[in-house]
Design a protein around this nucleic acid. Structure first.
Length: 457
RNA sequence: GGCGGCGUAGCCGAGUGGCUCAGGCAAGGGUCUGCAAAACCCUGGACGUGGGUUCAAUUCCCACCGCCGCCUCCA
């Protein structure tokens, strides 16, 4: 039985899907105005694993993740690059998907764009205005009236009074808004900005309304899980929820938020400018290392992902590869072998407890060690089951274990034969020369009980 | 100021009122190997500080110190 931490209730609760056997989840995606960084990777990997685990657990998962393709940052960027908003958004969105692909993050079933949903948003805003939850300020836009929605603040556990108190100094006081905590549903057109027609004049939608419109359209009321980085809890998700529920619709049932990625103890973010781009990280490390490094920390906690952590995770991942290679070399066929319950159960228990990936990974590594042991003892049957366990469970976490066993290269094979002839005649100097020569080409030899094999570093 | 979180061995990082216990990386010692590679075995060292509750606290309570997040665009 899966339990997960729900931001709204502030508790870890039993998960019961809206529709038996099916899970609907919506995860807030990026605003595409700059290159993706490591922080995006964390959120993407976390929810990718949630999705994979739910699917592995037998649920039919509908996974929707949006792309915000119109907002202030994109407009600013387009102006700076002397380009168009569409062009900026298109370019950075492509980069985003490309790099998530490299990370092994499964593509969403649907990835709606804000600009495709303007009509829906307008309808929703119109409903809010009619219901008295929103008001029009001529020449400025349409605003959500926070005081019309008493449950405002429930999700982020804030009191409107407290917000008002801090709002004075922090939120730009807009004379046109009735209250500093009110927020824009529709922004009136400014010169040079992309605009859409609306009952309130030309303009563009505010940010939060897009997710409310898209999630409800694609997943329906009371969809199961709404996710995102925990920096979105307030105001984004609070506002989304207010908008959706003020129309009388029932919104998300469980709210799941992932922690931030820190660098030097501080949150990695665009605005702080302290980010490592995803591309750089992926060029420097095995993408699986990023995944492992991310999953070795519980998803709700801040994680520090520096060079040391990534290097350590990379080695850990290669350890799994080494195990699989040893199994293949020994002729162990894990395909079709039954995973070992002991480890599968431990894995499931860990994951069922609010996606405890660090502990789940522990089970994977232990199974890997046991597999190596079984291989060493020549117990191929047990080895096959253990290898199957590792491959299966790592797979649930999105980590593909690869043996890396080199084959089908005549030139290398010839050298291996030559080296083994030298070894047989105890000409170790020559044997080592050959090995060094291959090493210089990035080929590592391993002399196993089943013969000499090679792999690329 | 309001709300929330964190502080665990060299590093990252789980977890628990008492049981040999995470796990990964690193270090030292061993086994295997001609030497390596890979693997396995063993070892060291932990729970921010001060109180309290308890037969027993790293785990519960209080205080303190330190760090971080949200309160503004942000994954």
């Amino acid at each position: 039985m899966l339990r997960l931490h729900d931001t709204l209730s502030g508790r870890t609760v039993a998960f019961e899907p809206r529709d038996e056997g099916r899970v609907s989840m919506y995860v807030c995606g990026p605003t595409v105005y700059d290159v993706p960084h490591l922080g995006h990777a964390r959120t993407a990997v976390v929810f990718d694993v949630v999705r994979r685990y739910l699917a592995w657990s037998g649920f039919d998962v509908a996974f929707v993740s949006n792309v915000t393709d119109i907002d202030d940052n994109i407009i600013r960027r387009a102006a700076k690059e002397n380009s168009t908003e569409q062009e900026v958004a298109r370019r950075y969105e492509q980069l985003y998907w490309d790099e998530l692909d490299r990370l092994g993050v499964l593509r969403p079933n649907r990835s709606p764009h804000a600009t495709e949903y303007v009509d829906d948003m307008i309808r929703m805003i119109d409903e809010l205005v009619r219901a008295g939850h929103a008001y029009v300020v001529e020449g400025s836009g349409v605003y959500f009236a926070v005081d019309s929605f008493p449950r405002y603040g429930e999700l982020s556990h804030r009191k409107v009074a407290d917000l008002l108190e801090s709002a004075g100094g922090r939120v730009e006081v807009d004379e046109e808004k009735r209250s500093p905590v009110d927020f824009a549903l529709w922004k009136a057109a400014k010169p040079g900005e992309p605009t859409w027609e609306s009952p309130w004049g030309t303009g563009r939608p505010g940010w939060h309304i897009e997710c409310a419109a898209m999630s409800l359209d694609l997943l329906g009321e009371r969809f199961d899980i709404h996710g995102g980085g925990n920096d979105l809890v307030f105001p984004h998700h609070e506002n989304e929820r207010a908008e959706a529920e003020a129309t009388g619709r029932r919104f998300a049932r469980y709210w799941v938020h992932s922690g931030m990625l820190n660098v030097g103890g501080q949150k990695m973010s665009k605005s702080l400018g302290n980010f490592t781009t995803l591309a750089d990280a992926l060029d420097s490390y095995d993408p699986r290392a990023l995944r492992l490094a991310i999953l070795q920390t519980h998803y709700r906690k801040a994680v520090e992902l520096g060079a040391d952590e990534l290097a350590a995770a990379e080695k850990a991942g290669h350890g799994l590869d080494n195990m699989l290679r040893a199994a293949e070399v020994a002729g162990v066929d894990h395909k079709g072998a039954e995973p070992v319950d002991e480890f599968v159960d431990a894995f499931r228990d860990a994951m069922d407890d609010d996606f405890g990936t660090p502990e789940a990974l522990g089970a994977v590594f232990e199974a890997s060690r046991e597999a190596n042991k079984a291989l060493g003892e020549g117990d191929t049957q047990r080895a096959a089951s253990l290898v199957a366990t590792v491959v299966e469970l790592a797979g649930v976490l999105g980590v593909e274990v690869r043996s890396g066993l080199g084959e089908g290269d005549d030139a290398i094979d010839a050298k291996v034969v030559a080296r083994n002839e030298a070894r047989a005649s105890r000409d170790f100097a020559r044997a080592d020369d050959i090995r060094d020569e291959l090493a210089a080409q990035g080929i590592v030899l391993e002399d196993t009980p089943h013969g000499t094999v090679w792999r690329r570093t």
